[in-house]
């Protein structure tokens, strides 16, 4: 069983939602990323999303753009990210999903990527600019290597698309909680709850919600109805301020622990 599926199954049994932090791989260095992943796990993360830096991140807000630029300045590539994950697997079994734009994967070669990523211990791939229609040729390659393909559903996705995306998604389904790019915001749109319910009408796969969740209160609120809560920019911003090193990792872990606590203490209906 894929680590992602196992983790969501275990959480479901406990009546808990997953806390899914996102960080940019290689920001500021890959050694720091490895340290951050372990710190996030200690803080209560259930799954970690690792952003693959890209020169033209058109779905990302300023915070993640700058993180990608910092990482690229250190010449981080998909290849050495996989190397870092492989080493990390000696210390942790936390499910790892790569969050990437398609071009770095294409340049690597989709088959070679699928093989090397699975071998390194990556559990899934989310390509933000690879919608359902463009996945036909690549999905089977990723699946046969054992990688989950996580798809995005957006507030603008009509119901028939929601159904098809839910069918094609594996690991979990990522609901983008608003129209717009990644980044922190004041309040999570109230329509999110309704949309999550609409997705559930088509599937019993886990539904995670992300884009714009930045505080423990928001995390608690979303965890009441979603199976996972993704927090990205708020953590990435903190990393941007702190840089690298063991002390920074402890501070990020402290913030992540608050978010994880928000998720854990959420009032969830008993049966989900």
């Amino acid at each position: 069983m894929n680590r992602i599926d196992a983790r969501f199954a275990a959480l479901r049994k406990e009546g808990q939602a997953a806390f899914i932090p996102y960080i940019t791989a290689g920001d500021p260095t890959l050694d720091d990323t490895a340290r951050y992943v372990l710190a996030l796990e200690r803080a209560g993360a259930s799954v970690v999303e690792l952003g693959v830096p890209f020169s033209d991140p058109l779905a990302d807000g300023t915070v993640n753009q700058e993180a990608a630029l910092r990482a690229l300045k250190g010449h981080v590539s998909l290849r050495n990210i996989l190397g870092m994950v492989k080493e990390l697997r000696r210390d942790t079994e936390i499910p790892i999903v790569l969050f990437s734009y398609f071009n770095p994967v294409l340049a690597y070669g989709v088959e070679a990527f699928a093989r090397d990523a699975a071998e390194a211990g990556v559990d899934g791939l989310l390509c933000v600019d690879l919608p359902l229609e463009e996945t036909e040729a690549y999905g089977p390659i990723l699946h046969s290597a054992g990688l989950a393909t996580v798809f995005l559903i957006a507030p603008t996705s009509p119901d028939d698309r929601v159904k098809r995306i839910a069918e094609a998604s594996s690991g979990f389904i990522y609901y983008v909680s608003r129209t717009g790019v990644t980044g922190a915001q004041e309040s999570v749109e109230t329509a999110v709850k309704g949309m999550v319910a609409a997705i559930r009408r088509h599937t019993d796969k886990p539904v995670a919600v992300g884009f714009g969740i930045s505080t423990p209160e928001q995390a608690r609120e979303v965890a009441a109805y979603a199976d996972g809560v993704v927090v990205g920019s708020a953590i990435v911003r903190l990393i941007g301020e702190l840089g690298g090193g063991a002390e920074a990792a402890e501070k990020v872990a402290a913030f992540a622990a608050e978010l994880a606590d928000g998720v854990r203490t959420s009032r969830r209906p008993m049966a989900t």
Partner: peptide, 12 residues
């Protein structure tokens, strides 16, 4: 060609 964009834009 094709449509290599985030899901939000697909309906548009």
């Amino acid at each position: 060609g094709g449509k290599f964009v985030p899901e939000t834009l697909m309906p548009a």
